[in-house]
C-alpha cells in the first residue's frame, strides 16, 4: 500500500523527466548519429577529431581542470575554518558565500567584465594608487577567474558538509593515540572528506567544461571552448546534427567523471563505516 502511494507521488516527476529530459536526450542522440539526409552516420561524432574541435575540447578540459584545482585549494582550508569556527559566525560566512548566488549568473559575469576592463574598476583603483594596470580581460586567465568565481560555492558546500559530519571524538582519539596534527589530517580528516571533495570536483568540473557564456564574456570570444563550438553549430550555423554530435562526445567526458565519482563515493562511504 505504502509503496503504491509512493509511485503515485513520483508520477509528476516521471512525466516531467520524460518530457523534458529523456525525450530531448533521445533527440540529441538521434541528431548526433544522423547526417543531414536523415541516414545513420558517425560523421558528426568523428568531427571532434578535426583540429578546430579538438583544440577547443582540449582547451575546455585544460581550463576546467585548472579552475577545479584552484577551487579545491581555496575551498578546503576555508571549509575547515568554517567548521571549526563557532556555529553562528560559521553560518554567517556560509551565508556570505551563498549570497552572490541569489543574483543571476549572467549579471555576475558581466559585472566581472566591468571590473576587469582596461578602464574598469580594478584598473581605475590601481592607477589611482600609481600601480601598473592589470590586463587580464579577454585572456584565458580571465576565463579561469570567471569559472572559479562562479563555481566556488559548489566546491565549498560539499566539503563543508563532509567535514561537519566527522565525529569530534575521532580527533580526540587520534590525539590520545599520539598522532600530531599533520597525521590527524592525513589519516582522519582527508579520507573522511573524499566524498565531499569528489562531489565538489564534479560540480565544478562539469559546468566549467560545458560553459560558453564565461568564455564569450570574459574571453572576448577569442578563445573557443567546446561549449562555444556547440553553441555556434546550433545558433549560427543551424546545423543541429553537428551540435548534437559534439554534445554526445562531451557527454562521454561527463559520464566518465560521474563513474569516477560514484566509485570514489562508495569508497568514501566505506571509510565512514
Amino acid at each position: 500500500m505504502k509503496n503504491k502511494k509512493n509511485i503515485w507521488l513520483s508520477g509528476p516527476y516521471l512525466v516531467w523527466s520524460a518530457a523534458f529530459v529523456i525525450i530531448p536526450l533521445l533527440l540529441v542522440v538521434y541528431y548526433g548519429l544522423t547526417a543531414k539526409d536523415g541516414g545513420f552516420s558517425l560523421e558528426y561524432i568523428t568531427a571532434v577529431t578535426q583540429p578546430e574541435n579538438w583544440k577547443a575540447l582540449w582547451l575546455s578540459v585544460l581550463l576546467s581542470l585548472v579552475s577545479t584545482v584552484i577551487c579545491l585549494i581555496l575551498s578546503y582550508p576555508l571549509a575547515m575554518i568554517l567548521v571549526r569556527s563557532r556555529l553562528s559566525s560559521g553560518s554567517m560566512i556560509i551565508f556570505l558565500f551563498i549570497l552572490p548566488m541569489w543574483m543571476n549568473f549572467l549579471l555576475r559575469t558581466i559585472a566581472w567584465q566591468n571590473l576587469l576592463e582596461k578602464n574598469g574598476v580594478i584598473n581605475s583603483v590601481l592607477s589611482w594608487l600609481h600601480l601598473p594596470a592589470v590586463n587580464i580581460i579577454n585572456t584565458p586567465g580571465a576565463i579561469v577567474l570567471g569559472m572559479v568565481y562562479n563555481f566556488l560555492p559548489f566546491m565549498i558546500l560539499p566539503i563543508y558538509n563532509a567535514l561537519s559530519k566527522i565525529d569530534e571524538n575521532l580527533f580526540h582519539a587520534a590525539r590520545d593515540l599520539g598522532a600530531n596534527s599533520v597525521q590527524t589530517f592525513v589519516k582522519i580528516t582527508l579520507p573522511l572528506t573524499v566524498p565531499g571533495i569528489v562531489s565538489g570536483i564534479t560540480m565544478v568540473f562539469i559546468p566549467a567544461m560545458t560553459t560558453f557564456v564565461i568564455s564569450d564574456l570574459l574571453g572576448g570570444a577569442k578563445i573557443l571552448l567546446i561549449g562555444n563550438v556547440i553553441e555556434q553549430e546550433f545558433k549560427q550555423a543551424s546545423n543541429w546534427h553537428a551540435g548534437s554530435g559534439l554534445s554526445l562526445v562531451l557527454m562521454v567526458f561527463i559520464v566518465i567523471n560521474m563513474i569516477v565519482t560514484s566509485i570514489a563515493d562508495k569508497d568514501g562511504e566505506g571509510a565512514l563505516l
Binding site: K36, P51, E52, N53, K55, A56, A221, K222, L224, N228, V229, Q232, E233, Q236, A237, S238, N239
Partner: peptide, 17 residues
C-alpha cells in the same frame, strides 16, 4: 543554401579556434 552556409561556418570556426 545549406552547403555554402556550412562552408562559411567552417571557415569562421577556423578563425575562431
Amino acid at each position: 543554401g545549406e552547403d555554402a552556409e556550412e562552408l562559411y561556418s567552417d571557415k569562421w570556426l577556423e578563425v575562431k579556434s
